[in-house]
């Protein structure tokens, strides 16, 4: 807490809230780069397939090509965009809320709750019947985790309480997930659970988009509603309160929004790490230390990173597909290291 205040104070010192540099053209700069980047990545994601690429997908058969395009490639691209965007957005919001650069969407237990929900569905063999039950279980798990968080922390809880409760829920959900693995009905089911937890967008359909989107959109809206409050929070909780932004309200907007949106994302894709952690870091030099200005660029960059990782998966030589969570971490970690090294260099000088 003290460290947080110091950080906030340092931030306020080095980047005054009304510094003109962050108001004018630089504000638009990320969008000039990111919007075309996402568009190109999305087109490339539709273009690139596991077995062949291109408009006709290497087929003479137009009907088959259309099926592949509309039923396989487009849903996959849409989900990469939505899931990646959600992770980026929620990562930025949480880092803003906690004024801590280590925050990431999984922190509050929403994604491990979603994973547990899906794993329970796997465990009871229900997923064998209908793959739709899997994301539904995930959504139920994430909402359950949020409800537990609220029950544990209470409405007017301090941020620290929320974070600690989130960590406890995370640990509980992870333990229960391992327990389910231990008691999996067969080694095959256990393997399937493990693979699912590494994250993947393979062979999802528009049904999954339809399932995730109605939860993601309210989640995003809650976070956007918290944007001004997040900016005010950079001055500290008391200052924010005097500015008219009740910290408790901002807290629950971000926590609720993250739980809804990330829960829905994890439910359809499995756990995809690193995007929510690394993306806000990548963009912060561009947007300055206004959490509100970080939100939309983080959504776009999260989408671009996830799309790129998913494209990379499909460009690999033939073999079983790599898992998306593995590739996002492989791409994200070097970026992150570079960033840290550069920053520590700046601090030293």
């Amino acid at each position: 807490m003290i460290a947080d205040r110091k950080l906030a104070a340092a931030t306020a010192e080095s980047q005054p809230l009304l510094d003109r540099r962050w108001i004018d053209p630089p504000f638009a700069r990320p969008f000039v780069v990111l919007i075309p980047l996402v568009a190109i990545a999305a087109l490339a994601s539709i273009w690139v397939g596991r077995t062949s690429s291109g408009p006709a997908f290497g087929l003479g058969d137009a009907a088959l090509a259309r099926t592949i395009l509309l039923e396989i490639r487009v849903p996959r691209t849409l989900l990469a965009l939505l899931v990646g965007g959600t992770l980026g957005l929620c990562g930025a919001a949480l880092q803003g809320l906690l004024r801590n650069p280590l925050a990431e969407p999984g922190l509050l237990g929403a994604s491990s709750g979603a994973a547990l929900g899906a794993v329970i569905v796997f465990y009871f063999g229900i997923a064998a019947a209908d793959s739709l039950l899997l994301p539904l279980g995930g959504v139920a798990g994430s909402i359950g985790a949020l409800a537990l968080l609220y029950a544990l922390a209470g409405r007017r809880a301090a941020l620290v309480t929320i974070v600690l409760a989130g960590i406890a829920i995370n640990a509980l959900a992870a333990a229960l997930t391992s327990l389910a693995l231990n008691f999996a009905p067969s080694p095959y089911a256990a393997l399937e659970i493990l693979f699912w937890m590494l994250g993947s967008l393979a062979d999802r359909s528009l049904t999954h988009v339809g399932l995730a989107l109605p939860l993601m959109i309210p989640g995003w809206l809650l976070i956007v509603a918290a944007a001004r409050g997040l900016d005010a929070l950079t001055l500290g909780e008391e200052a924010a309160a005097t500015l008219g932004y009740a910290p408790a309200r901002t807290q629950w907007l971000v926590v609720g929004g993250t739980a809804l949106a990330v829960g829905a994302a994890v439910a359809v894709s499995g756990v995809i790490g690193f995007v929510g952690l690394v993306v806000p870091h990548l963009l912060r030099p561009w947007t300055g230390h206004h959490p509100s200005r970080l939100l939309a660029p983080s959504f776009l960059a999260g989408a671009a990173l996830t799309l790129a990782a998913d494209i990379a998966i499909r460009l690999m030589p033939p073999g079983p597909e790599l898992k998306l969570g593995v590739v996002t971490a492989l791409i994200g970690a070097p970026f992150f290291l570079h960033l840290i090294l550069r920053r520590s260099g700046e601090l030293a000088s």
Binding site: T67, S131, S186, Y188, A202, D203, R204, S205
Partner: peptide, 16 residues
């Protein structure tokens, strides 16, 4: 297919 392999793939193929 195996009842534990590729839940998503199986349901996508069914829906097609």
């Amino acid at each position: 297919a195996g009842a534990f392999t590729g839940a998503y793939t199986r349901s996508l193929l069914r829906s097609l």
